[in-house]
């Protein structure tokens, strides 16, 4: 596993506002790394420093062991605010996007045609960009970020603006790219989406990294395991059990969160003595819960659809 990108204590101010405040993390080849946080957490600013659009006020960004400027041609970028030249023809535009990455347009033509075919846009290759639907424009832009075979792909909110079918298509595509050994860095505020897709997680809040590491580790780092129980009998006693921190008990089911260090097995044993257990499930905490705990807030954030 080789390191593709590393950030060392990166800081960026906008006037007096500190948008990014000492961020450090790494991105490795063959992995999908998710940069997670709410709107305004500093995700886009961080990505812009990685892609060389902004320069950090302090700290260092290393791409392939060198400064960003020297390695931009090995990086594909899908910015948060999508944009293409509206009057350009689709194929011309793709070739232009490859050319500004230092590739010769002639050599990129087959790749461009291949990507258009994959995104089912082959018939549109001579249309002007503005004649395409918004979703199709997004796909053209994604193709532009990928067609020149970048080793690192940076995507700012790749799912936004796509319909569910295309979200699945993109998810499968990213998996494939990672399997080919490319490094993927994406930002999102949708924790559920990240949980399905990412190998590595970097949780940011207010410009700072609050948790980072492999998905499983991050999830294990906080939140509590919960037990979902279905039974017949009177389950009221479960709330008093030492392994249970808090409980919500209905007639035939209970959702219990475990006390720190408690063993779910003990609880099962205790339940089996007095109840007829129909279902017993230990549920790992969601990323959402880990995030909320790390940020120190109980109320769930508003999540945009």
């Amino acid at each position: 596993m080789s390191r593709v990108l590393s950030l060392h204590d990166v800081v960026k101010h906008y006037g007096s506002v500190k948008a990014v405040d000492g961020v450090s993390f790494e991105v490795n080849a063959g992995k999908i790394t998710g940069l997670l946080g709410r709107n305004g957490a500093g995700k886009t600013t961080t990505l812009r420093m990685i892609t060389g659009v902004l320069r950090p006020d302090r700290g260092r960004v290393e791409l392939f062991g060198a400064a960003v400027e020297g390695a931009r041609d090995r990086l594909g970028y899908l910015p948060e605010e999508r944009g293409l030249y509206r009057k350009m023809r689709v194929l011309d535009h793709l070739l232009f996007l490859a050319e500004i990455k230092g590739r010769s347009p002639a050599s990129m033509r087959p790749a461009a045609e291949r990507w258009l075919k994959r995104f089912e846009l082959s018939e549109k290759k001579d249309s002007k960009v503005e004649e395409l639907s918004k979703g199709n424009q997004q796909k053209v832009q994604l193709a532009g970020a990928l067609l020149f075979d970048p080793e690192l792909v940076v995507l700012d909110e790749p799912g936004s603006g796509l319909d569910p079918v295309n979200v699945v298509l993109v998810r499968r595509l990213l998996r494939e790219l990672a399997a080919e050994g490319r490094a993927i860095l994406l930002s999102t505020h949708q924790m559920g989406e990240a949980e399905k897709l990412c190998d590595e997680i970097v949780l940011v809040h207010a410009g700072m990294v609050v948790r980072s590491g492999p998905l499983a580790e991050v999830k294990a780092s906080g939140g509590r395991d919960a037990v979902h129980l279905e039974f017949t009998g009177d389950g009221a006693f479960l709330a008093e059990h030492p392994a249970v921190a808090s409980a919500r008990i209905d007639t035939n089911r209970a959702e219990l969160s475990l006390a720190p260090g408690a063993d779910a097995q003990e609880l099962l044993a205790a339940a089996a003595v007095r109840l007829r257990v129909l279902r017993f499930e230990v549920v790992a905490p969601s990323l959402e819960e880990v995030f909320l705990e790390a940020v120190g807030e109980a109320a769930p954030p508003e999540v945009a659809a």
Binding site: D73, Y77, G83, L97
Partner: peptide, 16 residues
């Protein structure tokens, strides 16, 4: 136009 069409971010990320 590049600013309002938001193409510029791609351009600046690819060249000086």
């Amino acid at each position: 136009q590049e600013k309002t069409d938001r193409v510029v971010e791609l351009l600046v990320s690819s060249m000086t």
